[in-house]
Computed example of a mutant assay.
Amino acid sequence: MTYSIAGRCPRSGMLGAVVTTSSMAVGSRCAWAEAGVGAVLTQHRTDPRLGPRLLERLRGGQSPEEAVRALEAQEDGLGWRQLAVIDAGGRAAFLNGAMIASVHKGRVGHDCVAAGNILRTTAVVDAMIESFEEHGDQPLPERLLRAIEAGNAAGGELKQVKSAALLVMHRESFAYVDLRVDLSPRPLEELRFLWELYQPTADEYVGRALDPGAAPRAI
């Protein structure tokens, strides 16, 4: 009951993911990313422990494909899971567990990987990939948002989506963007609204953290 896409920007080095689902608070469970390492999505009977474990494997030098296959060999219950992983070099992989019975799909694109389950149609995943690739001139957060909006327009999932999240890492240990809609009848519209408010100040918030003396004085 979730669809999502993870990607990277080769110009800026940003890594991130966007996700939506028909249950609440998806951002606290499904999306993980680390600057200079990669981004991970873990969904369908979600185990939030898998995100940090996959990032640790990427940090240790494994490719996304190697990380997913190693986890598949070691983790009980992975047949119920759906995973999508991309690293800082743009390599990507996904896993569709054998126990997923609904309409589902994973697909690797150029600098991105998308996945979805309990979908109206597998075209949802294709639409996300195609949108991400089409908008390569846009900053990564915008590309991710446009991609998931395209997936929604292509049919989305069977139930009404209720939560959504956008996570993007840049150079720092803290997130460049971490926006969440935890419960709403229109979470993607609200996520778009939050991003358009946050976008003009995103670099300023980074500056406040790194060099507070140079930050504009609040009035």
Rank of each mutant, 00 (worst) to 15 (best):
G156E: 01
V124K: 00
D203R: 08
A164E: 01
L41M: 09
D137T: 14
I148F: 12
T42V: 15
A6N: 11
I118T: 08
E204Q: 10
T121Q: 08
V19M: 11
R180L: 13
F193M: 07
L119M: 12
A6W: 02
P212I: 11
V18W: 01
V206Q: 11
G60S: 14
L158C: 09
E149R: 09
A92Q: 11
L15Q: 03
V26N: 01
A31H: 01
G13S: 11
A92Y: 03
V181E: 01
G89C: 12
R11D: 14
R8Y: 05
A218I: 10
W195H: 08
A214V: 10
P141G: 07
A93G: 04
E142L: 11
V37P: 04
V124T: 11
V26H: 01
S184F: 00
D111V: 03
R143H: 07
G116F: 00
M128N: 03
D47Q: 13
W80D: 12
E65H: 05
A150W: 01
P216F: 03
C112Q: 03
Y198N: 07
N117Y: 09
T2I: 07
R11K: 04
L55E: 02
A165I: 04
G27C: 13
E134G: 11
V85D: 03
T20I: 07
C9S: 11
R146I: 05
E75H: 10
R120F: 08
Q199P: 03
A6H: 02
R69W: 12
W80K: 12
V37K: 04
E56S: 13
E56H: 11
A209W: 13
R171P: 00
E72F: 14
T122N: 10
W195Y: 07
H44E: 01
R81Q: 07
E172L: 12
R171M: 08
S4V: 05
V161C: 13
G27I: 04
G90H: 10
I100R: 07
F132A: 04
R120G: 10
A154I: 02
R120L: 08
G207A: 13
G60F: 15
L194I: 06
K105C: 14
A84E: 04
G60C: 15
A150M: 10
S12T: 08
G106H: 03
T2K: 06
D76K: 12
V124S: 02
G13M: 09
E134P: 00
F132S: 03
A215Y: 07
G97A: 15
C30H: 09
A154K: 04
R143W: 04
H44I: 14
R217T: 11
Q43F: 07
C9G: 06
L50G: 04
A98V: 15
I219S: 15
W32K: 01
L145F: 05
A88C: 14
Q62L: 15
A165W: 02
N117C: 11
R53A: 15
G27T: 03
R91S: 09
L144I: 06
I129S: 03
D111L: 06
G27L: 09
A6L: 09
M14Y: 04
K162R: 14
A33Q: 08
N117F: 12
R91P: 02
R49T: 13
S28V: 06
A214P: 03
